[in-house]
Amino acid sequence: MSVPFLQASGLSKIFRHKTGLFAKPTNQLAVNAINLELAARERIGVVGESGSGKSTLGRLLLGLTEPTEGGVWFEGVNHKERQAQDWTAFRIRTALVQQNPLSALNPQMTIGQQIGEGLLVHHITGRAGARDRVASMLERVGLSSAMMNRYPHQMSGGQRQRVVIARALILEPKLVIFDEAVSALDVSVQAQVVALLRSLRQELELAYVFITHDLRIVRHLVDRVAVMYLGRIVETGDIRSVYEWPRHPYTRALLASVPSMDPTVRNIEPPIKGELDGSILSTGCTFRTRCPFALDRCVTETPGLRFVAGRQTACHRAEEFPQAIAKQGSLTRKDIAR
């Protein structure tokens, strides 16, 4: 059996919050027993609301945060077993692209210095070589190589995000975590950066995890999708099958919340109520407090991920959902079996 490229097993992260000197610390289960496997050159989207734990998952995969339980294996090596030099080798083979491109860039360094830093620190090239590589990388992400001497504050948001992408790709990584990589950008700039990522995907043989709350964007960028709710994956599978016939009420609600371009199309999915409730439920489905379809069974029995129609979903009622989440013309909630 071959070694998986990236594997997370039983991965959990609990953050302890101390509100005051004598206050009892509260535990927040950011990532809860996640299993994930990624093949080389595979692209997966991780989708969820803010607070669903998707960014923490990204940081865990890169070993920037230590898991409370479980582990992450990259090319068969557990993060916990890495020595200092293994970490350096791992960091060269992986990269992180973060949300806000202004704060993701050091305001005191020129963008050329920042993009080229990895090359110099890891002794991959000399100064002149780094300059050439940075120049060609800048052009590859659609910027002029003359921008090398600029500081981040002298660029626009879209340009900065291209710089962040250039910095991530300069070491030719095999795995990139895009953490809300385009969320902070204007829609028109977003489209440009997504187009850039799609073209880079063709050229570079890399696997990536694309973390986002925006379901529209991820559709064009990934092969597989994992929907996260309160630290758990509630549905995961091939992007097409999940989007065409979502089998988890949370996925359905997320997809239904994406506005349709057709004004006659009505959303028939009952809306989910309230906000993300981080209090830890000992048993039952974590989504039940907001789920319009919750039964008594959802309180007593925790649904695990199981195979339903070619994907994995964690809902007791997965088989009952109709394909459509929206229909032409006016429909009422009665269309859905309660």
């Binding site: 992986t94 992180l96 973060q98 949300q99 704060s103 993701a104 990895g118 620190v121």
Partner: peptide, 12 residues
């Protein structure tokens, strides 16, 4: 700051 996380992720 995120740029410190970025530097860490780059193995600096």
């Amino acid at each position: 700051q995120p740029y410190i996380a970025a530097a860490r992720a780059d193995g600096i």
